[in-house]
């Protein structure tokens, strides 16, 4: 197996709480691999640190420790011009496409600027490339004169993707790319990611809370809770035989549209909310909400191998699943 294009090892990103001065351990020792031509899902509740992880990878947050190896180089050690050129190959897609586009720029101007930043000096070449980029995200060329406010949500998000493509990226980090869009137009954006993966061999880290969307898009999935990875595996394994009680609870909370299925299912209702990342529980971080928690959970749980590439951070992960779907 070739080396992954992006390898995150034991990454820690902490913030300082301005009031108490305590450390908010948003991302607390995360390891994650991303291969070329692969969409990898990163799921978890809000506040679990999944966005912080994505933002640290593209350099929007500063890592406390750990390493991010991209094409064999450590991004955290890179400096200067070559560093910027390497970093540019990892692009970020934000949740809200409206605020990701300048209100003062037309689509054409925004794409043109991205190309200038990427070092394309020739004006005519840029104009031609702008039209190519729009075509790559299936948008009509006449959109170049539009402002972000004059477009629909789906169009805006595709413009954001086109702008990211202007940097010729190898990796896209997509933070909830469709959760602000209407249900009926999410497919336009999601299928675009599938196309980029298949046509360009793009690697995508898909950060999302919607497990059903991640299931259709991602080959592998990481489940994150309170700054740590709880379970990782191939989508088929993780959705088929979830090993971690947290994954099982998340899956059982996915609403079903068929009222008969909805009534027949067994639901694992989690009580309460995610604890504060300033003071995470000792031992297993999930134990305060876990329906299967026992005394042993107060000690740090082991990484249990469930199958090829299927790993869960739980004392009982080797046992039979608690609530198969």
């Amino acid at each position: 197996m070739p080396e992954p294009i992006l390898r995150v090892t034991d990454l820690k990103t902490h913030f300082r709480d301005s009031r108490t001065g305590a450390d908010i351990r948003a991302c607390d020792g995360v390891s994650l691999d991303l291969n070329a031509g692969e969409i990898v899902g990163l799921v978890g509740e809000s506040g679990c640190g999944k966005s912080t992880l994505g933002r640290t990878i593209v350099g929007l947050e500063r890592a406390r420790s750990g390493s991010i190896r991209f094409k064999g180089q450590d991004l955290l050690a890179l400096r200067g011009k070559t560093g910027a050129a390497t970093r540019r190959e990892i692009q970020y897609i934000f949740q809200d496409p409206l605020s990701s586009l300048s209100p003062r720029q037309t689509v054409g101007e925004a794409l043109d600027e991205a190309l200038i930043i990427n070092g394309e000096g020739n004006r005519a070449a840029r104009q031609a490339r702008v039209l190519e980029l729009l075509a790559a995200v299936s948008l009509p060329a006449q959109l170049v004169h539009r402002y972000a406010r004059e477009m629909s949500g789906g169009q805006r998000q595709r413009v954001c993707i086109a702008r990211a493509l202007a940097a010729d990226p190898k990796v896209l980090v997509c933070d909830e790319p469709v959760s602000s869009l209407d249900v009926s137009i999410r497919a336009q954006v999601m299928n675009l990611f599938l196309k980029l993966r298949d046509d360009l061999g793009m690697a995508c880290l898909l950060i999302a809370h919607d497990l059903a969307i991640v299931r259709l898009a991602a080959q592998r999935v990481y489940v994150m809770y309170l700054g740590k990875i709880m379970e990782e595996g191939q989508s088929a394994d993780l959705y088929g035989q979830p090993a971690h009680p947290y994954t099982q609870a998340l899956l059982s909370a996915v609403p079903l549209t068929n009222p008969d299925d909805e009534q027949a299912r067994r639901r694992i209702l989690l009580s309460g909310d995610v604890p504060s990342p300033m003071n995470p529980p000792s031992g297993c971080r999930f134990r305060t909400r876990c329906p299967a928690a026992r005394a042993v959970c107060e000690t740090a749980p082991p990484m249990v191998q469930r199958g090829a590439g299927h790993v869960a951070l739980c004392h009982f992960a080797a046992d039979a699943p608690l609530g198969a779907l």
Binding site: R88, Q91, Y92, F94, D96, S99, E113, C160, A164
Partner: peptide, 26 residues
Amino acid sequence: SQPYIESLRVLGASPARIIFRHLVPV
């Protein structure tokens, strides 16, 4: 902290470009 400025940072825009082309006009 707006995503459109953060996008420019991810794209690798220089601070001068972000300041003079985007922040100063605002």
